[in-house]
Simulated scan of single mutants.
Amino acid sequence: MTQWTVHGTRRIYESEWMSVDLDDVEIPDGERFEHHVVRLPHPSTAVVVVENDQVLLMWRHRFTTGAWGWEIPAGRCEDGETAEQAALRETEEETGYRPTTIERLTTINPLSGISSHTTHLFVATGAVKTGEHDPAEAAKVEWVALNEIPASIRKGLVPCGITLAALTTYLTLK
Rank of each mutant, 00 (worst) to 15 (best):
T2D: 07
T2Q: 11
Q3R: 13
T5A: 05
H7M: 11
H7T: 03
T9H: 12
T9M: 10
E16D: 15
W17E: 13
S19T: 10
V20Q: 05
D23R: 13
V25R: 11
V25L: 13
E26N: 10
E26A: 12
G30H: 05
H35V: 10
V37W: 03
L40F: 15
L40D: 04
P41Y: 05
P41T: 02
P41F: 05
H42W: 14
P43E: 15
P43H: 15
S44M: 03
S44F: 04
T45Q: 12
T45A: 14
A46F: 06
A46L: 11
A46C: 12
V47C: 07
V48P: 00
V50G: 03
N52R: 13
N52E: 15
W59N: 12
W59F: 14
R60C: 06
R60Q: 09
R60G: 12
H61W: 10
H61V: 06
R62L: 12
R62G: 11
G69N: 00
W70Y: 15
I72V: 15
A74F: 09
R76W: 06
E78H: 10
E78R: 06
E78D: 12
G80E: 02
E81G: 04
A87E: 01
R89K: 06
E90G: 02
E92P: 02
E93N: 08
E93I: 03
E93G: 01
E94K: 15
T95N: 03
R98H: 02
R98C: 09
T100C: 02
E103V: 12
R104F: 10
R104E: 14
I108Y: 04
P110T: 06
G113Y: 08
S116E: 14
T125S: 13
A127T: 01
T130F: 06
G131Q: 05
K140P: 01
V141A: 05
A145Q: 12
L146S: 06
N147G: 10
P150S: 10
A151L: 07
R154P: 07
R154M: 11
K155Q: 13
K155E: 15
G156E: 10
V158M: 00
P159A: 04
C160R: 07
I162E: 04
T163A: 05
L164S: 11
L164C: 03
A165H: 10
L167G: 00
T172R: 14
L173P: 08
